[in-house]
Amino acid sequence: MSVSSKKEMLRVDDLWVEVEGKEVLKGVSLTIPVGETHVLFGRNGSGKTSLLMTIMGFPAYRVRHGHIYFKGQDITHLPPYERAKLGIGIMFQRPPTIRGVKLREMLQLCARENGYRITELAREFGFEAFLDRDINSGFSGGELKKSELLQLLAQEPDLVLLDEPESGVDVENLEIIGRMIRKLLQKEVHRPRRKSGLIITHTGFILNFVAADRGYVMLDGKISCEGNPQEIFEGIQKHGYQECLKCLRRMEMEKTLNK
């Protein structure tokens, strides 16, 4: 790998976060280099979404300790729209409906810095019929994901945060959603990639559509394990998260014994 591809896009450093007085992240650290896609596995309630929300900067997620660096800049205390302007984009798992605001209008707002051609973009993924509908209003599971990804494509962020992109999507749409994510992360580009991604997944099935460079397992607000994403995925598929816990206990025991 060339030196430039090793440049860091995101660095999370010993992050402790609480929501309404409850500790949700307990010392999380990870680094995503430019051009890499990392996957975060974990059960529901393990803290995966909290990590994404904290990286995006939502005020309910209070950082008690630690730092977030984006392209080398400390963004720990920036509001979400400043982070968006710097180049972070997020795909929500359950985006709200905004009455009276059309998807087209939203896409134009997302694309206001780059002048992206909205209609062409929507047509590419068979979504132009939704442009003049109220955003997310009455959208099915797959349509919500497409709407979210279309907004991100218009926004063109350098770091993409994807929260459970495959949940509630049928097989047919999963193919299109995979294609959208690959475009977003420049997976089909041969020159050095500039985009990075952090994908949250409970099932891991998104890996069948999007290649990842590194995987993590999150348990109870901590990253308990990291390694080859495919191996982690296969391990979880075979043994479930229960096995992760056992493995973790074994590791901890070995650690104590070695002392």
């Binding site: 968006a84 810095e113 926004q155």
Partner: peptide, 13 residues
């Protein structure tokens, strides 16, 4: 949540 959603897309409050 509507305001925060839009802020994540780069709009100020």
């Amino acid at each position: 949540e509507e305001i925060e959603y839009l802020m994540a897309r780069g709009l100020t409050e």
